[in-house]
Design a protein around this nucleic acid. Structure first.
Lengths: 223, 223
DNA sequence: AGTTGTTTGAAACATACGTTCAAAACAAGA
DNA sequence: TCTTGTTTTGAACGTATGTTTCAAACAACT
């Protein structure tokens, strides 16, 4: 008794809406979690925004903690699927082809493609990642790394193959730096703006921000 | 009625302890806030760790929100003071001297000097900054930027002077990237480790991590 | 020793939260 | 239409939280 619309072009899902209770909850939850944080968002706020009953969260997801995991799963399933397709291709390439720009592309393209599924999905996803990363204490990070960590390991191996002159330590940390720039910048691209002055004429498109970032990160990688 | 010990060498405060209730609360609060987050840390947990009465938080700081601000103030007063001394010097220098390594040093040295005041102060401070940054919604970021933003503006101007070939937009974003790497890396240097494999032999000292980061960031700045 | 202003202490308050429950509403098949 | 399994609903429960209150303890000064 809910409405589902799926727009498919040349076999690819371009946009889909799903008015089921579960989807309405996930949509409201991911927005509010990204906006305010996990602890700061109550189930009542979520169900109120989703226009569903409070009890339906526990009925469909079991608990608030499981809802948070479900929000991440929806993003990470899409993302890691696309990423591992790219990794499969790159793992066939010779080391000479594994330059930073190429490897970053394998990360960024799947990321940007998320915006095809939901509005502002990339910003929301990055904010959620930033928050999950801050949750040193919680079980969320453990859950994410246990479930999706193997993809990042493959990504690391490609960098090691492409940059044999760097030690494993250097690779590890530089990947760390790059992730930091990416998540930090995309999570709060509207944030640091108010720190600086107003006389900047910045392009706000996520795509442009990332495009601007690639040469910066690639240069650092070659340092 | 409380004990204060200040160790001064050649006119500089090397280490100081202060057993007043306010200090005990601040010490416990900054540790727990960094560890678990603001919302996830209750006043009862704080006062229990600090071994003071629950009501003393509201007596000395007014509210939990004000306590959070006070925690930041204690860090930022130390840090921005040291930073602005360095900025004063650098603002006298010719543009040719304002290279990325030098400017980053003006940021990093005051940062590292925080570890002289309290144990693990740098890591704690960076985690707090990461959390404050994630708090898009809250008033915390507004408070910090209104009170200490002018120092960052001066820092931005120095970069513009040192790198006249870059547009203001590029400067702005690249500073953004650098901050992301810095905060992200230092806030969770023990975090991404478990994602990757165990066969890395990483140095864990904050100082070393930062030292390793400078060439990476400087190369990006020159890209 | 007595007075005054400050700090601490134990208890209580009101509120917001995640979760549970049982009844009602609904959908689908016999 | 009756039955069965699923979903939605409104209300309630227990608990944890930030804050307030007011009396007791304390420190400094005369």
């Amino acid at each position: 008794m809910f409405q589902t619309t799926v727009l498919v072009v040349y076999g690819q899902i371009i946009m889909s809406t799903n008015d089921s209770t579960q989807t309405k909850i996930l949509d409201a939850a991911e927005f509010l979690f990204a906006e305010r944080g996990f602890a700061e968002t109550s189930l009542r706020t979520i169900t109120s925004r989703a226009k569903v009953n409070l009890a339906s969260v526990n009925y469909h997801f079991g608990s608030k903690k499981s809802l948070i995991q479900a929000v991440f799963d929806r993003f990470l399933q899409d993302f890691t699927l696309q990423l591992s397709i790219r990794l499969n291709e790159l793992e066939q390439e010779p080391a000479s082809e594994l330059k930073a720009e190429v490897l970053l592309g394998a990360l960024i393209d799947p990321l940007l493609s998320l915006n095809k599924t939901r509005k502002n999905a990339v910003s929301i996803f990055m904010r959620l990642l930033g928050r999950a990363y801050a949750e040193t204490q919680g079980h969320l990070r453990r859950y994410v790394t246990e479930r999706y960590g193997h993809v990042l390991v493959r990504f690391t191996h490609l960098f090691q193959k492409g940059y044999p002159g760097l030690t494993n330590d250097q690779i590890f940390w530089r990947l760390h730096y790059m992730l930091g720039s990416l998540i930090f910048t995309l999570a709060g691209s509207d944030a640091l703006r108010q720190i600086s002055e107003a006389d900047f004429n910045r392009s706000l498109e996520v795509k442009d921000v990332i495009q601007e970032m690639v040469p910066f990160l690639a240069a650092g990688m070659k340092a």
